[in-house]
Design a protein around this nucleic acid. Structure first.
Lengths: 203, 203
DNA sequence: CATTGATCTGAACACATGTTCAGTTAATCA
DNA sequence: TGATTAACTGAACATGTGTTCAGATCAATG
């Protein structure tokens, strides 16, 4: 059988991306076969090659798409008036964007090593762009004597790692909403950069 | 040829663990074949099975060994007099233990999903034990009104992620020694939990 | 020196892999 | 209605996989 009722390119294409994303996140790129992806989509392995040139490009595409969307979302935020506001904006953006996308975060931080050198370079450049935004904010705050950190660059690494770790434990059905988590993380980051925080922080 | 001059079990055994550790860290468990490991050791694939029951056990053994050594090193530290000292001790221990062992850290945080359920449970229990130590310290500091964090448990996740991230950028030939990194991270963590830090912090 | 036993080779096993492609199906269009 | 063609199947390809095992090799032992 082929071309079942209602099955179109516009359905199958995105379905492949979703299935690959989920499976790569859960089992890892190398551990997932094209046949598993096809099975999840409800199609034979050969049919995938109408939409994707090869497995490597499929992974690379997922990573590039995610990083570009992340950067685009960051660019759409309003301009912050001072370093403190800019930092708060970054913290909240990072958490609120990542928490609903745990699969994308997983593969973005775990499958870099499975990219060919050129694909790796493309994704790494996007990542450096993104992380550089935070470093710039921190440097501005340090220069304006509003933040106190040992080293702006290292602090940016520390904060990125701290924020990204949220996806490892966040539970959508748990006590805290994504907003609540963002509130708590903002308080911790504010203290981390030496800002005085007013209240003990109830939601 | 077999049993070349000077090749013994006590040499080949550890060599296999080292080769597997390096290769798993660099390419991922699923992407590494037993033949690659054997080639790195300088032996045929079949010979590995004199030392390891199967590939899965090889990975599991590496993870369990690392977590046990990490916990053992933590247990050997002197008892700290107060929460602040205990936290500083944990931070320095975590960084100084992890920085020289980037491969172990990588596989411990990336290959959990490739463990069979029972092996996963064993490693996860060790991990929870370790991370629980930090949570206890934080809770003690909060109860003694020495620390100010929104939530001790969440703060422990945040701090673990922040500290572990060091291995992603640390360069043994870089500006900072492991000690220097520990100093800077301790300052950041101290501020994160609301402690007043005296100087701007030169090494 | 003869024998033993640990250590390793090399071939084989059954099966999985990414990818290609001739052929089949069915929705669409003239 | 007949022709076209996007969408898909199913088989095939060369190669790689974890694992097993009979047999070769050599250090050590009595």
């Amino acid at each position: 059988m082929a071309r079942k009722t209602g099955s179109h390119s516009q359905i199958t294409g995105p379905k492949i991306q979703e299935a690959a994303l989920q499976l790569f996140a859960r089992h890892g790129y190398a551990a997932v076969s094209m046949r598993q992806i096809a099975s999840e989509v409800g199609v034979q392995a050969g049919a995938l090659y109408n939409y994707v040139p090869d497995k490597q490009t499929l992974l690379s595409q997922l990573l590039v798409d995610h990083m570009q969307a992340l950067l685009a979302a960051l660019d759409e935020l309003p301009v912050a008036p001072d370093p403190k506001a800019a930092l708060e904006q970054f913290v909240r953006h990072h958490i609120l964007y990542h928490v609903p996308r745990p699969d994308e975060v997983f593969i973005s931080y775990m499958e870099l090593r499975n990219l060919t050198p050129d694909n790796h370079a493309r994704v790494a450049a996007l990542r450096q762009d993104y992380e550089g935004r935070l470093a710039i904010v921190l440097q501005a705050g340090v220069s304006a004597a509003q933040f106190r950190v040992p080293d702006a660059k290292i602090a940016s690494y520390a904060i990125i790692a701290l924020l990204t770790g949220v996806v490892n434990w966040f539970d959508p059905n748990g006590r805290l909403s994504a907003q609540g988590v963002a509130d708590e993380y903002w308080q911790m980051v504010a203290q981390l950069v030496g800002l005085q925080v007013a209240n003990g922080g109830d939601t």
